[in-house]
Amino acid sequence: MSIRINETHCIGCGRCTEVCPGTLIELKEKKAVMRYPKDCWGCVSCVKECPVGAIDFFLGADIGGMGSTMHVESEGDILHWKIRKPDGTDKIIDVNRKDSNRY
């Protein structure tokens, strides 16, 4: 379970390093670095916190990962979850924070 931080997109704001509940991410030379990939819980707090969508979440191959990555872009109450599949196609799921779970 882990994340990949896109070094080109990262603006070094440090918000992910603050919010990670395991304090697993560090800033090095103004870029966020995942220091302990195997210690990631997969809560995606950092993915939600990143203002530029530079953090991708993925499933380890040991738990069914097949190469897709996921990140989220927030727009007010709407969270646009973008899943990029290995074939390059995207699946987008929009979730409104004002809508309750129905189940």
Partner: peptide, 22 residues
């Protein structure tokens, strides 16, 4: 289906990704 995918994004996003990966 879509409601369940959303529900898990709000709690355990890895399960949503797992359904998509499969």
């Amino acid at each position: 289906d879509e409601e369940l995918l959303k529900a898990y994004l709000n709690m355990a996003p890895s399960q949503t990704l797992k359904w998509i990966e499969s």
